[in-house]
C-alpha cells in the first residue's frame, strides 16, 4: 500500500529559481485579494439577511434597529412547525439509508470487487452526474405513473438518498481507503465473529467518516427541494413551504428561517472544526498530506 510518497522525506524547494521579492508580494497580494473577495461574496448575502431578519428596517439594516418580530412570526406559524418536523424525518431517514448503503458499497469495492472495481465505482458515483431534477421527475414517473403510488415522505427519502449516496460514498472512500483490513483479520483469527469484528474493531475506527457522511446526507436531504418537490405529494417540508412563500414575495419570516438554518449548519461545522483541530476525529480529512503546493 505504502508507495514512495510516504517513505521519502519531503524535499523542501531549496534550489531552483525563485521569484524576485516584489513579484512574490504581488502574487501573494493578488491571490489573497481574490480569496477574500470570494468569501465576502459568499457570506455577504447570508449576513445581510441575518441582520435583516433581526431588525425593524428589514430591507436595509445598516445600522440595524433590533426587533425579533420575524422570529416570533416564524415560531407562531404552525405550518412551519409541521414542515420542520417533516424535514427532520426526511433528513434522518435519507441519511440512515445513505450511510448504510454507501458504507457497504465502499467496503464492497475495496475488499471484494477485485478487477471489477472500476465498473462498480462508475455505477456508484453516477448519481453525482445526473441532475437533481432528473432524479426527482424520473422517480415521480416510476412511482406515480407506473406503480400508481402516491407521493409521500417515504418516496422522497428514497430519492434523496440516491442523490446523497454519491457524496457519502466519496466521504467513506477517504475514510476507508486508509483502513487496515488486517485488523479485522486479526480479530477473526482470535475468534471474533464477523459481527463482533464489525462492532468492536471496524466501527470504532471508521465512525468519523460515518458521522461526516451522515451529517452531509442529512443536511442535503433536509434542505432539498428539486428532488423532494416531485415526490412529497401534499407533505410540507421547510424548503417546500419556503418556496411556496417565496412565490408571493420575500418576507422577513423567510429571512429568519434562512438565518436559523444557516446558524445551525455553521454550528455543526464549527463543532466538526473544533473536533478536527483538537485531533479528536479526522472525518476523513488528512492533515499530514497538507503541504502539496509549493
Amino acid at each position: 500500500m505504502t508507495e514512495t510518497s510516504t517513505m521519502v522525506p519531503h524535499v523542501p524547494a531549496a534550489g531552483g529559481r525563485r521569484l524576485p521579492a516584489p513579484r512574490i508580494l504581488l502574487r501573494t497580494g493578488a491571490l489573497c485579494l481574490v480569496t477574500a473577495m470570494v468569501y465576502v461574496f459568499l457570506y455577504l448575502p447570508i449576513i445581510h439577511i441575518g441582520l435583516g431578519s433581526a431588525s425593524r428596517n428589514t430591507n436595509f439594516p445598516y445600522p440595524p434597529h433590533w426587533a425579533f418580530k420575524a422570529y416570533a412570526d416564524l415560531f407562531a406559524n404552525a405550518l412551519y412547525r409541521t414542515a420542520l418536523g417533516n424535514s427532520i424525518l426526511l433528513g434522518l431517514g435519507s441519511a440512515v439509508l445513505t450511510v448504510t448503503m454507501s458504507t457497504m458499497a465502499m467496503i464492497g469495492v475495496l475488499r471484494f470487487a477485485g478487477r471489477h472495481a472500476r465498473i462498480f465505482i462508475l455505477l456508484f458515483v453516477a448519481p453525482l452526474f445526473v441532475a437533481e431534477v432528473l432524479v426527482g421527475i424520473s422517480s415521480l414517473v416510476l412511482s406515480g405513473l407506473f406503480l400508481g403510488l402516491p407521493g409521500n415522505l417515504f418516496s422522497a427519502m428514497l430519492a434523496n438518498s440516491v442523490h446523497c449516496f454519491a457524496y457519502a460514498l466519496l466521504i467513506m472512500a477517504t475514510q476507508l481507503y486508509r483502513y487496515d483490513w488486517r485488523l479485522d483479520e486479526a480479530a477473526m483469527v482470535f475468534g471474533a465473529t464477523p459481527a463482533q469484528t464489525f462492532w468492536l474493531v471496524t466501527l470504532p475506527l471508521i465512525w468519523p467518516g460515518l458521522l461526516g457522511a451522515f451529517l452531509i446526507s442529512f443536511i442535503l436531504s433536509f434542505n432539498n427541494l428539486e428532488i423532494s418537490f416531485y415526490l412529497l405529494g401534499a407533505t410540507p417540508t421547510l424548503p417546500s413551504v419556503a418556496w411556496g412563500a417565496l412565490r408571493y414575495g420575500v418576507k422577513p419570516e423567510l429571512f429568519a428561517l434562512a438565518t436559523l438554518v444557516n446558524l445551525t449548519v455553521l454550528a455543526g461545522l464549527a463543532g466538526m472544526y473544533v473536533a478536527m483541530a483538537r485531533g479528536w476525529a479526522k472525518f476523513g480529512h488528512r492533515p499530514e498530506r497538507g503541504a502539496a503546493v509549493g
Binding site: Y39, L42, Y43, L44, P45, I46, H48, I49, G52, I216, I219, L220, F222, N223, N224, L225, E226, P239, A242, W243, L246, V250, L254, F255, L257, A258, V261, N262, V265, L266, L269, M272, Y273
Partner: peptide, 22 residues
C-alpha cells in the same frame, strides 16, 4: 475549506432567498 460548506449546505431555496438580499 469548511467555511465553503456553510453556503453549500444551506439548500437552494434558502440561498435563493439570500441572493434576493444581494
Amino acid at each position: 475549506s469548511l467555511a465553503l460548506a456553510v453556503p453549500f449546505l444551506t439548500g437552494e431555496v434558502l440561498r435563493v432567498i439570500a441572493l434576493q438580499g444581494l
